[in-house]
Design a binder for these strands. Structure first.
Lengths: 249, 249
DNA sequence: GTTAACCGTGCACAAACGTGCAACTTCGTG
DNA sequence: CACGAAGTTGCACGTTTGTGCACGGTTAAC
């Protein structure tokens, strides 16, 4: 095992789990804890993580380089993204909707997992291609300025030809009474069409969406496989939602 | 065992395993570690991999050719872009290929001209949507990592359903003898298919392309409506090209 | 306040490194 | 065919780098 490779491995664990436990990694890789500690120290010196007792944690947002901060999701969204990525099985085909939470997901997609990512968002497509080694397929169609995703008749037709295992759906409103809603009629239709072509649909529920309602209905809560929320979100609305749909935190 | 053969072998191992351990390869091939180290050093100098203690690793994503090309357009490219935009009539539908020259075009597209821009490049799509008020249509399909445009069977099918007035074609080689060439087979096919669906095709000829030849032929010079070049480019090859195709400068 | 886990440091050893050099091959030239 | 120039290869050398272990100090948890 090359030292540089070990560091890559540490970076990956940090992205995936949000933390690194020195002892576990040492046992895992079959090297001494000393080596892992040394690696962690060097990565900390390079400003890639913060050293803590027992292992390491990601940089707090304030310490990150500015170019990263510009596109950075909130910590809540990152936790939702991490929980969502956990649902992805190797060799599967997933659809990523547009949005900051899905953008956060693109940064922590597993490498070498033989994934195919389908998306109606050019921004997501570029991010996935940059950060991982998955196949990327773009759903063609007219680009809606409101949401920057392809929609309309061309997109609807393209969607009819696809099939996927998982759909990570982004909406702007998640409410026990009004269900899942978004701000654009065409988008709502596209989201519905995609959901119909996927075995499972999970809704990404970062904190500001919970309890909110937008103009156009997308789906009912019963129509989706589950709702992924921030494990640290204590909003009581989540409990109300849990009576209607499976909630993952 | 020839040095070139050894290097091929190293490239292959790197692709397969994601790493190269100098010692293992040396034992495997029955040559000294010195030779392997020398090869690795040369490959690293050529920018094909990164040298690390004990062997070598693939290039980090940020160093790959696609990103290198995403740099700012030169002044020459901007002059070509300006000349190309002059060809666009109001209320028309145009196809923009990927590339730095077309990216420069997106910044100077006329406002309020009722244009529709079709593109296989997510980066171009985003740029157009950001800088102008045209309708934007993305050609769906699998995203080729080499060029960051959609290509393959899905894209080919999508192309069959479109029709446009103007196609601004980007290639990597424009040569009087070899015609128009590019570095990827799938891309070449997509470009050909798009050209067939457009009333006119113009090739964007920024200075470094003139007289260059890439691996895969796209079209003959007679197959396009014209070649747009930098008005300040005095390369004599342009005169040779002018005998075969209409040159706009 | 005790205890166990974790830490940094110093150290010894091994592995990998670059460099210079000599032996060898290849190829062109006289 | 002889010759030398240029390139390649393996070896020897001293140096640098990575690794694991032992030690004593520090931290967190009960």
């Amino acid at each position: 095992m090359l030292s540089a490779q070990r560091k890559d491995h540490l970076r990956q664990i940090l992205r995936r789990d949000g933390r690194v436990v020195a002892k576990d990694v040492a046992t895992d890789l079959g090297v001494s804890e000393d080596s892992i500690r040394r690696d962690l120290r060097e990565l900390a010196d390079a400003g890639e993580l913060v050293r803590v007792y027992g292992g390491a944690l990601p940089l707090p947002p304030a310490d990150r380089p500015v170019d990263q901060r510009a596109t950075l999701a909130t910590e809540s969204k990152e936790r939702v993204a991490r929980r969502a990525v956990d649902l992805i099985r190797p060799s599967s085909t997933i659809v990523l909707d547009a949005g900051t939470t899905t953008l956060a997901m693109t940064r922590i997609l597993p490498h070498g997992a033989d994934l195919t990512v389908i998306t109606p968002s050019p921004a997501i497509a570029l991010a996935v291609a940059e950060h991982s080694d998955t196949r990327v397929v773009i759903i063609g169609g007219e680009l809606a300025r409101f949401s920057m995703v392809t929609s309309g008749p061309l997109a609807m037709e393209a969607v009819q030809h696809l099939a996927a295992d998982l759909f990570f759906l982004g909406v702007t409103g998640i409410d026990p009474g009004h269900g899942l809603t978004t701000g654009n009629l065409d988008d709502a239709a596209t989201k519905r069409a995609i959901s119909a072509r996927c075995a499972q649909t999970y809704v990404l529920g970062s904190e500001e969406k919970i309890g909110a309602t937008s103009r156009y209905p997308v789906l009912d809560l019963d129509d989706v496989s589950g709702l992924v929320v921030d494990p640290l979100d204590t909003n009581p609305v989540i409990d109300a939602l849990a009576e209607r749909v499976s909630v993952l935190r």
